[in-house]
């Protein structure tokens, strides 16, 4: 167990990170992500209110659908990334644990009048992730298996009312399940009773999301990186790109039009040595062109994988670069992400 943002978090369970990672890709794992902040946003027009703080198209979010977006600051930097679900009569937000208090202060200060929010302190959150997740959950929650990726639906298991979204942070099919905390252990044990399901910790969560090419806040994105630099422009809807109306809009709009001087990229080291966070990226002449923001061993990729920022001139796939690990430049190349193909459920059609 390690302290993380005020919570005691398991880095790994007894099988170890590698086994937990592989089990998630092969079958299904449960991650306790109750440290994440869960917030309900209500009011006359919570979508319009939230759009003053995020560049995502929230007004265009149909009922029962969810979207990835971020709180931006006046310079276009990212204060936090979050998931927003249109539950129907309110918006449901999931934010990062380490940013939770700042996010709440930001919402309090920034939301226009007529909008209220509740921090759902009495709800836990688990992620059920992996190719077996749909069958496992559908045994207890019939119909959960045909929910499309990035949709939300309420279910009841063993008398407990759950808010289920088909989403996750592993690149696999799966769910995040919000549970009244009093029921969280019981519901987790019910799902865990399935032969296909094991527990997985923070270590596997990190290696899975890295292989999936997903950003970790505070590492791959932060106040100094914009969504455009981070390769997250896809999350900014057409209407928002044109209309702006979120913090840092001018800078972000200009970057979308003109490009940025650096970009977040995937990097594959040629050898077996992992290039970890903070590793300098250099060109053939030893000039520094960037830095690794997340890196390690990708169990499914079968070798080291990394992501980081490089000067845009070097951001094209297959560009050779050097990774300075323990003062020694080691060859690698810019690579497409994800490192392991996503396997999200897009529906039956």
């Amino acid at each position: 167990m390690v302290p993380f943002a005020g919570y005691e978090m398991p880095v790994q369970y007894s099988p170890g990170i590698l086994a937990e990672h592989n089990h998630t890709r092969a079958k299904a794992s449960i991650f306790d992500v109750s440290h994440m902040g869960q917030v309900a946003l209500r009011g006359d027009d919570p979508a319009a209110a939230l759009e003053t703080l995020v560049p995502g198209d929230i007004a265009g979010l149909a009922g029962g659908r969810m979207r990835y977006t971020m709180f931006t600051n006046e310079t276009g930097g990212i204060l936090d990334d979050l998931m927003v679900t249109n539950v129907g009569d309110y918006l449901f937000l999931v934010v990062n644990a380490a940013c939770k208090d700042d996010d709440i202060a930001h919402l309090r200060a920034g939301l226009p009048g007529g909008t209220e929010f509740d921090v759902l302190e009495n709800r836990s959150l688990i992620a059920l992730q992996g190719p077996a997740a749909a069958n496992v959950l559908a045994r207890h929650a019939p119909g959960a298996d045909i929910m499309p990726f990035m949709s939300a639906q309420p279910f009841e298991i063993d008398g407990s009312r759950l808010a289920v979204t088909r989403s996750g942070y592993t690149g696999e099919d799966g769910y995040e399940i919000s549970i009244p905390s009093a029921d969280a252990v019981r519901i987790t044990e019910i799902l865990l009773a399935d032969d296909d399901v094991e527990l997985a910790g923070l270590g596997a969560r990190d290696s899975l999301r890295l292989e999936a090419g997903l950003c970790l806040y505070g590492h791959d994105i932060d106040k100094t990186t914009t969504p455009v630099e981070a390769g997250l422009t896809w999350s900014i809807g057409k209407r928002r790109r044109a209309g702006g109306g979120f913090p840092g809009a001018e800078i972000i709009q200009r970057q979308i039009a003109d490009g940025t001087t650096r970009k977040r990229v995937g990097i594959l080291p040629d050898g077996k040595a992992p290039a970890r966070e903070g590793t300098q990226i250099t060109d053939a002449h030893g000039g520094v062109i960037g830095v690794v923001t997340s890196g390690g061993f990708g169990p499914t990729a079968g070798g080291p994988v990394a992501m980081g920022y490089v000067d845009s001139d070097y951001a094209t796939k297959e560009t050779p670069v050097n990774l300075v690990v323990r003062d020694k430049p080691r060859p690698g190349r810019i690579a497409a992400m994800p490192f392991v193909p996503n396997r999200y459920y897009r529906g039956q059609e």
Partner: peptide
């Protein structure tokens, strides 16, 4: 250490 993936 846990699962060893590289030795230099």
């Amino acid at each position: 250490l846990g699962d060893v993936v590289f030795v230099e």
